[in-house]
Amino acid sequence: MKNTTVDKILDIVSGIKELPKGAFNIRVNGKSVKRSSSENVEIIPRPAGDGMDIHIAPGTKNEMVHIPVVMDASGMNDLVYNNFYIGEGAEVNIVAGCGIHNDGDHLTQHDGIHTFYVGKGAKVKYTEKHYGEGGGTGSKVLNPVTEVHLEADSVLEIETVQIEGVDKTDRTTRGDVKENAKLLIKEKLLTNGEQEAITRFSVDLDGENSSTTVSSRSVAKGQSKQYFYSVLNGNNKCAGHSECDAIIMDQGFVKAVPDVTANHVEASLIHEAAIGKIAGDQIIKLETLGLTEAEAEERIVAGFLGI
């Protein structure tokens, strides 16, 4: 990309060091700067330039799609609509991600509205990494909305990661799941300083034998605040599991609000929430292996978040 900041952030949020293989769209400061479709994956920009429609052909196997977003212009507010149409039986790995570098004093914000139409029997993995950096006083804000519609027998696995630098995020993920389909959502989140993160999961298990596992592992450091709202509606014979597991440090704040509703006698729904500080004996154990207290905490947090 010939821009060191952009290249670095691209690598952090989507793991790409050069132009990726397969289909991709790289969006920098509100504009698509590089785009490529592949034989099975067609990326069509929306006429207004505010996003794209991505069509993945039925039966596509083992393809990657990269759609990273980078912003390094302070004061920008970028709203993007991306629609994914995943054909029947397709197996695809989609890597999104957004990184903001803000050296200025103005708010920089990216709101990605993503909608997934997952065809019958398709298997999709969607990874979204959020990252912020920069020495300015301007906030870095990301408010993604992800809507997913799963047809029968499909599987969608969503993994979201936000480890550092994002001042505020309000993430909404809504899904409806048809028969024998499975929605897996895994969130990893670390907040620090004055940061605030809100997670809103809402899943309707509509089809017979539909299932979902919604899990969040998070660490709240400094004076940061996290809110976790999880709504599961069991509208048929189904299985739903919602799990919030949080480590709280310093003066951090974590609120977890479960909301599970069974509208069918064979709906089986579980919610688990565990919030607590790092256990003292975990630190002691790592100290006996030669780590300092700070090193032990760092290692425990990294292991907990899988980073």
């Binding site: 975990q282 154990k285 292996l289 780590l291 425990i300 990294a302 907990f304 899988g306």
Partner: peptide
């Protein structure tokens, strides 16, 4: 012995 969520046997052996 202490349990750790996330840390693997290999991680602790290396430490």
């Amino acid at each position: 012995p202490v349990r750790f969520k996330g840390l693997k046997v290999y991680d602790l052996l290396k430490l």
